[in-house]
Amino acid sequence: MAAPLVGNWTKTTAAPDYPDTVHFHPDGRYDTTHAAADRHPRWDVGRYEVPGPGRVRVSTSNDAIIEYKFAVSGDAVTFTAPDGTEFRYRKQG
């Protein structure tokens, strides 16, 4: 179920709460990189799962597991946070 997100992604929109890059591993782990020094990202390192089409549950920096909507289009993915914030990543390689 993790398949649509597996891989390395680079952020393409301004969303300071989310990391510059995220790597979703096939085994359900994810890790990130974040160069911006002003804020620690909500996604730092942990686990994720895709419980159904277009939904991903991510363990976050304070250990809350938060469900996001996502939509993959070509090499881009758009996530929608519970508060409606949208942010996008582009797949690398």
Binding site: D27, R29, V45, S61
Partner: peptide, 28 residues
């Protein structure tokens, strides 16, 4: 201890299996 560490301002740290790594990672 891990959650109290967050309350003390610490974030996740996967460099070792210490308090601020996540339980899932250590178990895995």
């Amino acid at each position: 201890v891990h959650e109290a560490g967050h309350a003390m301002g610490l974030y996740h740290n996967t460099a070792d299996h210490g308090y601020m790594n996540t339980t899932n990672v250590i178990a895995g």
